[in-house]
Amino acid sequence: MNSLLARFAENTFWLARYMERAENLARILDVTKTFVRDRTGGQDWLAVVEINADETPFFERYETASARHIINFYIADRDNPTSIISSVRAARENARSLRHLISTEMWSHLNRFYNALNRLSRSDLTVANLSNLCERIKLGCQAHVGITEGTLYRDQVWCFYHIGKYLERADQISRFIDTKYQHLKRVEASEDSPVDAGQWSAVLRSVAGYQAFRRTHPRGMRGEDVLRFLLHDPDFSRSIVFCMTQIHQSLRDLKQRFKLRQDPDADKEAKDILDSLRDRTLVGQVLDAPHAFADDFQRRLIGLSDRLGHSYFGWLK
C-alpha cells in the first residue's frame, strides 16, 4: 500500500518550506554583514527587514535596525515567527509528525540542529560571530537537504517535499529581487553615480550564484544581467524559472506516476506561471516596477498553494 495521508503531505510540504526559509535567511544575514554597505559605509541592516516585510513587527519590538537587534530578531527570537529558530522549530514539529515516514537520520539531524540553536548564548549572537554562526546554520540546513536527498524514499512524500522546497525558494528570490531592485531605483533617482559592481556581487553571493554568474558572464556585472540570471537561468538552482520547472515536474509526477487527481489542474497553473516568466519583456518590466512584479508573482504562488491544499491536503473550499 502506498497511499499517503493528506495531513502528512501537507506537513512534508511545510517541513521543506521551513528549512528552505531558514537557509535563505542565514544567507541574507551573512551577506548583509559582509558586503552590503550604505552610503556612509555602515551595514544596511534595514534591507533585511524590508526583504521579509517585517517593518511592523520589528519596530514594535526594537527602536533601531542595529546589528544586534537584527541578529537577535532573525536568529534567536522565539517570538518572531520568521526567525531562524522559529523556522527550524516549526520544521522539527512537522518532522515529528512525520517520523514514521522519514528516515531516522533526517529526524535525528533535525533534532540535533534544533538543540544546538536552542543552546545559543548571547556571545554567539554578536556581529563578530555572525559569519561563523551563519556558516553553521547554512551547514545545518545543507546537511538536512543532503540527508533528505540521500535517505528519503522517492514516493509521493518526496514530491511534496520537493514542491515545498522550490516554492519557498521561488518566493524568497522574488522578495529578494523586489527589495534589491527597488533599492536600485531609489539610488539611481537620488544620485548620479551608478550602483557599483560590489552591490551586485553581494546580491549574487547571497543566493550562492556568484560563481555561476561569473562563468556565464565572464565580463562585467550589470544589474540587468544579474536580474536576468536570477529570473531566467535554466541551470541555476535558485533562479525563479528553475524553481518553477521543478515544481511543475513534481506536480506532473503526482498526476502521472502516482495517479492522483488534481482538481483544478495545479500542474497547468504551474505551467502558466512558467510561461509568463518566459516573456522576453519581463526583465524590463521588473526593472520598471519590481514591487508590482513580486507582488503579482507571490499572489500566483499563493494561488498555487491553495490548489495544492484543495487537491491534496484536504482543505475545504
Binding site: S3, L4, L5, A6, R7, F8, A9, R99, H100, L101, Q156, L254, F258, K259, L260, R261, Y312, F313, G314
Partner: peptide, 30 residues
Amino acid sequence: VFLAREMGVPLVEGRDLVVDNDRVYMKTTG
C-alpha cells in the same frame, strides 16, 4: 511512531479518519 514505522502502516489521528455508511476511511492525497 516507532510501531507505525516498524509495521510500515500509516500513523493516523482521529481527524484523519471518517466513517461513512459504517465503513471507516482515511483521508489520503488520493
